[in-house]
Amino acid sequence: MAATLPLRRVGMFGGAFDPPHWAHRALAETALGQLELDALHILPTGHAWHKSRVLSPAHDRVKMCELAFGDLPRAQLDQREIHREGPSYTADTLRELKREYPQAQLFLVLGADQLLAFKTWVRWQEVLELATLAVANRATNIGADIPLDQASETDLSGVDLPFVRLDMPLKNISATAVRARVGQAAQSAGALDVLVPEPVARYISQHHLYQSPT
Rank of each mutant, 00 (worst) to 15 (best):
A180H: 09
N141D: 03
V135T: 09
G158P: 01
P87D: 06
G143R: 15
Y101F: 15
Q105A: 08
E126F: 00
P169T: 06
P147A: 07
V182S: 04
R179D: 10
Q105D: 13
R138C: 13
L170S: 08
K171A: 13
P162V: 06
N137D: 09
Y89R: 03
K119H: 08
I173E: 14
L108C: 07
R99P: 06
K171N: 11
V182N: 03
D145G: 12
R95D: 14
L108R: 02
T90H: 01
F163Q: 14
A144R: 10
R165E: 14
A104E: 05
A91H: 15
A117T: 10
S88P: 00
S174Q: 10
D145Q: 12
E153H: 10
V135R: 10
V178M: 13
L130T: 00
Q150N: 09
D149S: 14
D92V: 14
D145K: 12
P169R: 04
T140G: 03
T154R: 13
D113P: 15
P169V: 10
A151E: 00
A151L: 04
V122F: 08
L156R: 12
I142Q: 04
L97W: 01
S88E: 00
V109H: 03
L110W: 00
E85N: 04
A177H: 14
G86D: 02
R165L: 09
Q150M: 02
V135D: 13
D155H: 01
Y89K: 00
L106H: 09
S174D: 11
R123E: 07
R99L: 02
R99H: 04
V164Q: 00
L133F: 08
V127I: 11
E126I: 02
L161D: 09
V122I: 04
A180E: 12
N137E: 06
Q105S: 10
Q150V: 05
V178W: 14
M168L: 15
D113V: 12
W121L: 04
V122K: 05
T93V: 08
L97V: 06
N141P: 04
N137I: 03
I142C: 00
E85G: 05
L94H: 07
L133R: 13
V127Y: 03
A134M: 02
A131G: 06
D92K: 14
V109K: 06
L108I: 00
R179Y: 11
Q184A: 10
G143F: 13
K98P: 08
R99E: 06
T93Q: 05
Q103K: 12
M168D: 06
S157T: 14
L115F: 04
R138A: 15
A151T: 10
S88L: 06
I173Y: 11
V127T: 05
A151M: 05
V127E: 04
N137R: 12
D149F: 07
E153N: 12
P102Q: 03
A91M: 11
V109S: 01
S174W: 03
D113S: 15
T93Y: 02
R181Y: 11
Y89P: 04
R138P: 13
P87I: 02
G183F: 11
F107E: 09
P162A: 12
T140Q: 02
L128W: 09
N141M: 06
L110P: 01
E126W: 07
G86R: 02
T120Y: 06
E100P: 01
L161A: 06
A104N: 08
